[in-house]
Amino acid sequence: MTVTRRWEFAGRDGAVAARSWRHPEPRYLAVLVHGYGEHLGRYEHVARALLDHGATVVGVDHAGHGLSAGERVLVADFEDRVADVHSLVEDARADHRDLPVVVIGHSMGGMIATRYAQLHGEGIAALVLSGPVLGRWEALEAMRGLDEIPDVPIDPSTLSRDPQVGRAYADDPLVWHGPFKKVTVEAWARCLDAITRHGSLGALPTLWVHGEDDRLVPYEGTAVGIEAVRGTDLTERRHAEARHEVFNETNSDEVLAEVTAFVDRVLSAPAR
């Protein structure tokens, strides 16, 4: 029987809301790292797929997101978000010390997950990146050049070909529908630069999944960042016509099957 737990812990910028889906006999620990302006509640179906695959799943709402404390979408330093994820992983591993850890990050969460892997890669078995913000993001560069960022919300139609995904996003009170904040934009640029300067992920098995019709985080810009961190074990999956949220796309079952097949390959391989 699945046991779901919710709790809070003291993060770098206040109370962080955490959640777990506990498998009775887990094969691995999956850590979900959500994207900008959203929250972990949008990943229920991802958690269930991983749970069915034999994982205990954990994740947080980043500070300033979802049910966590903090000014909405304000990030002064993304290293603090990385530290919060590390606190979550350390807490989860207290009960599962011998389980391999797979970190799965989407969009902004893909950036956070990549930085986490650079700093704590010795403690994880694999990294999965979904439409990650890495390398060159033209939207960020444009916002950095503005004195005042306009109050233009993310277009829900850019998330998925499934219109229900966009409607649910637009109607979700825990999703941030306001403008980007200058402090966050500058912190984002610093984090991207730190990731690029740090460089290769080494031998860490990494799966990169991206929609070819991703208009929020275009493939070409992310590819620049992937080249900067590319290690010796990178698997790339591009999905024709898919938009930004490949886990919420019309072929999400196919995408999640790619993730679980990748995890199976990693778990069956000899220890690094």
Rank of each mutant, 00 (worst) to 15 (best):
G123M: 02
A55I: 03
A113N: 13
E122W: 00
I124A: 05
D91T: 13
A113Y: 05
G121Y: 03
V82A: 09
E71C: 08
E138P: 05
A142C: 04
S107G: 12
D80T: 12
H65K: 08
A126Y: 01
D151T: 13
R48N: 02
Y43R: 04
I149F: 02
V103A: 05
E141W: 05
D91Q: 09
A126C: 05
A142H: 09
V102N: 01
D61W: 07
H62S: 12
E138G: 10
H86E: 15
D80V: 07
G66A: 11
R136M: 08
M111G: 04
H106S: 10
D151P: 10
A94T: 15
A55Y: 00
S130R: 03
D95C: 09
L40C: 09
P132I: 05
G64Y: 02
M143K: 05
F78M: 06
H106R: 02
V73A: 14
V75D: 05
L140V: 11
G70T: 15
D95L: 14
G41W: 03
T114G: 10
R72Q: 12
M143C: 06
A117K: 06
V57I: 10
A63G: 15
H39T: 14
P150L: 08
G70W: 08
L99W: 03
D151E: 14
G54Y: 00
G110W: 06
D147A: 15
G105V: 03
V73I: 15
A142D: 11
H106Q: 11
Y43G: 03
A63K: 06
A126H: 04
H106C: 03
V73E: 07
G131H: 03
A92D: 11
D98V: 12
A55N: 00
S68P: 08
D84W: 02
M111L: 15
V85C: 11
A49H: 01
H45N: 07
M108C: 05
E141H: 13
Y116I: 15
L119E: 11
I149E: 03
G123Y: 01
V128I: 13
D95F: 09
H62N: 12
L134W: 02
L119P: 07
T56K: 01
E90W: 06
L67R: 14
H53A: 11
G105C: 02
V133Y: 00
E141D: 15
V85S: 09
R72N: 14
D52P: 00
V133D: 01
P150C: 12
L140G: 13
H53Y: 00
A126S: 06
L67M: 10
V75C: 07
H62F: 12
V58R: 07
A92E: 13
A139R: 11
G121W: 02
L140F: 02
Y43M: 08
M111N: 06
V89P: 08
V60E: 14
L99C: 09
R72E: 13
R93W: 06
V58S: 08
A94Y: 01
E38I: 15
V133G: 04
D98H: 10
R115D: 11
L51F: 00
R144P: 01
S87H: 12
R72Y: 09
L140N: 10
P132Y: 03
V46D: 01
L88R: 10
Q118W: 01
L67N: 08
V75T: 11
F78H: 05
L134F: 03
L67F: 07
A47K: 00
H96F: 11
A69V: 07
D147T: 15
G131Q: 04
